[in-house]
Amino acid sequence: MACNAVCIANAGGQIEKEFSHLARINSISDPLNYFEYPIKNSLKNKLDELEKLNITKYEKLKTDSFNFANKCLNLNKDGLLLIQNIIKN
């Protein structure tokens, strides 16, 4: 996501749980695409859906990925805040 990649992951697991949580607390939509693992054709259908998108919508998915990573997963930004908190204490 930090590399502008479009990501597809299995639904209902830790990935969805943590990413949907991060999206909620940061008031941003979760850019991950989920499929029902291990249901047959679930991944295939999800990929088909992706391929049907026009270039504008596909590029938006890539941008959304990066924006999410930048807002919700930014290690350095939050790490520095933590250090500041320690200094205060």
Partner: peptide
């Protein structure tokens, strides 16, 4: 990082949800 950037999409099909891929 370049493989990620240049990919059409990345797929995670994790068979062990109690120990997720990003762990």
């Amino acid at each position: 990082s370049h493989y990620y950037k240049n990919s059409y999409c990345c797929i995670i099909a994790s068979k062990e949800d109690y120990c997720p891929s990003q762990v």
